[in-house]
Design a protein around this nucleic acid. Structure first.
Length: 541
RNA sequence: GUCCCCAUCGUCUAGAGGCCUAGGACGUCGCCCUUUCAAGGCGAUAACACGGGUUCGAAUCCCGUUGGGGACGCCA
């Protein structure tokens, strides 16, 4: 089974059967990327060079001497994860602070796990959080012929070789190695087959993969966040470049794309650190200069395990839905593993760009603290200008059925509740009294008012005086309420609390006078009346 | 198991040999402000994982131990 049989040969045989030295077919479309999906960030400045030409030449000569080129390369296998978002943010910060371009590449070569909808989803999440990419999105799946082409070059140059070993053989060897407590390493069975042996097997139609020849020397990786890391040779085996069906593997695709796209800085997740020596060797074999690598520690859940859905939200999408502001999420994620210095915590993207440096990146994993994110969100909720807040608040208002046609009124209510809400969803939930015809009063919280025999008369008198006010301003309302309390010989609070309940159906909330001013004369009278009706109805019962 | 990475308050972090009696922030607790709830102000709580070195001097450098994480595929 596995690895054997005829189907394996379809993809490769025409190309690979050629003799070394035989003239190669011209490149199908090297270094040429067609943006695959049209969705772009709102500000779609198109700085994209007319594809192939610029990028290809940059790759050959000046990959590392020119401007910074970073990339973010997610697999479209799910929603954008906060870990991925944080990687994207650091790439964003790096390229903005140094000047350069951000390339978005979708690594969708695993068709089984990839979902086209997710490609859109990832883009919309990135755009929402405020990351603009300059080039792409490029679909890696569309560049497969190019990857294959580069692998064939390596084969011809004898930097790679054909391996005819079956998966059964390899599985057995792997099991054997592990039982002995060793890292499995391909034993290079096929590394030195003679020309005649190879031709005999090709003639017999034996399926094969293409493997890269790895050096027997250790490989040192210079990492921007870890420093120098050395990998001993026995940890590095001759890994596969082309599968037996001729398709390129991940490592090949990544490196070829990074070369063709002239990527200068590879900032990616920690889980790729152990892949990096392979990539380093591939860059060398392909004659390309090395980009600067940096491996970011991953984000942990409160259980100190890799962040998982069991603990709570993990995708950008979920936080957006909960009412987290994009500015707050960006800020929070950026600070998870990086400190701008001077004990600064609340800072906007512009400020972070000015302060960013890779040296400040932390090497240790960070636990995602939901409480702190909520705190940070509330800070943004309090300080963001209304105009900046509104676009993100709107969907929540609509969901809550709040009419949005009077922006000044919305702004007034927002100001009332800014310091009292932690999320946009909570904030939107505070709009009811200001737009609803009538309110639902919580019976439990109203018991104390039901017991107050004098309340009804007092509210009636208060309502009369408020309705008579020529100017419905905070000070006038203040004077009215306090004045009445004094006349009645009671503390202002005796009037204030039931009135707040009457007008907002809540025991807590903004200062009564401010609240009444925003509510307006008409709604104040209406709510007061319906509260009195509510009291009467429940007293009777 | 093998290889690699990591290690300061519960959490995010500052700290590049003397400035550390270890700083800031979230959280928690208290007080103040106050018509309530928040917000805000003030204060408290709480950490250099352990053991060896190096040094006049170590949170900072080296080694080991322990703990945590990652990688070990014809997945990406």
């Amino acid at each position: 089974m596995g690895g054997t049989g005829g189907l394996g040969r379809t993809g490769l045989s025409p190309l690979l059967s050629e003799r070394p030295g035989a003239p190669r077919r011209p490149a199908s479309s090297p270094g040429r990327f067609a943006p695959a999906v049209e969705l772009r960030p709102a500000r779609a400045t198109r700085r994209l060079a007319p594809a192939g030409a610029v990028i290809a030449s940059a790759a050959m000569k000046t990959a590392l001497s020119g401007p910074v080129r970073v990339r973010f390369a997610p697999s479209p296998t799910g929603f954008l994860h906060v870990g991925g978002a944080r990687t994207a943010i650091y790439n964003d910060l790096l390229r903005q602070s140094l000047g350069g371009s951000f390339v978005l590449r979708i690594e969708d070569t695993d068709k089984a796990r990839s979902d086209e909808a997710m490609t859109h989803q990832i883009q919309s999440a990135l755009a929402w959080i405020g990351i603009e990419w300059d080039e792409g999105p490029f679909l890696q799946s569309e560049r497969l012929p190019r990857h294959t082409e580069r692998a064939l070059e390596l084969l011809e140059a004898d930097k790679a070789y054909r391996c005819f070993c079956t998966t059964e053989t390899l599985d057995a060897q792997r099991a054997e190695a592990q039982s002995q407590g060793l890292t499995f390493r391909y034993p290079r069975t096929c590394a030195h087959l003679s020309k005649t042996e190879i031709e005999a097997r090709l003639a017999a139609g034996t399926p094969f993969v293409v493997r890269l020849r790895m050096p027997d020397a250790p490989i040192e990786v210079r990492d921007m966040v870890r420093g120098d890391v050395e990998f001993p040779p026995d940890a590095l085996d001759d890994f596969i470049l082309l599968r037996s069906d001729g398709s390129p593997t991940y490592h090949l695709s990544v490196v070829v794309d990074d070369i063709d796209m002239a990527i200068t800085h590879v900032l990616r997740g920690d889980d790729h650190l152990s892949n990096t020596p392979k990539h380093v060797r591939l860059f060398e074999a392909l004659g390309a200069p090395l980009p600067a690598f940096g491996h970011l520690p991953l984000i942990l859940g409160t259980d100190r395990k890799r962040l998982s859905k069991r603990i709570g939200s993990t995708s950008v999408e979920e936080f957006r839905n909960e009412g987290i502001l994009s500015q707050a999420l960006y800020n929070f994620l950026a600070l998870l593993g990086w400190a701008p210095g001077e004990d600064r915590e609340l800072l906007r993207r512009r400020e972070m760009i000015a302060l960013f440096s890779v040296e400040g990146l932390n090497a240790s994993a960070a636990v995602f603290d939901r409480e702190k994110l909520l705190w940070m969100n509330s800070q943004y909720l309090m300080s963001l200008p209304f105009a900046e807040l509104l676009p993100q608040l709107l969907p929540f208002l609509e969901e809550a059925g709040v009419p949005t046609s009077q922006p000044e009124r919305l702004a007034a209510v927002v100001d009332l509740y800014r310091p009292r809400a932690r999320t946009l969803r909570e904030l939107a939930g505070c709009f009811g009294p200001y737009f609803a015809e009538r309110l639902d009063y919580p019976l439990e919280d109203c018991r104390k008012f039901l017991a107050d025999a004098e309340l009804d008369a007092r509210l009636t008198e208060l309502g009369r005086r408020l309705a008579a006010l020529p100017s419905f301003e905070t000070e006038a309302i203040d004077a009215t309420v306090r004045g009445l309390a004094e006349e009645l010989g009671v503390k202002a609070a005796v009037l204030i609390h039931p009135t707040r309940m009457a007008l907002t159906a809540a025991t807590g909330g903004p200062g009564l006078f401010e609240l009444v001013a925003v509510l307006g004369q008409e709604a104040t009278a209406r709510h007061l009346a319906s509260f009195q009706a509510f009291l009467a109805a429940n007293r009777a019962a």
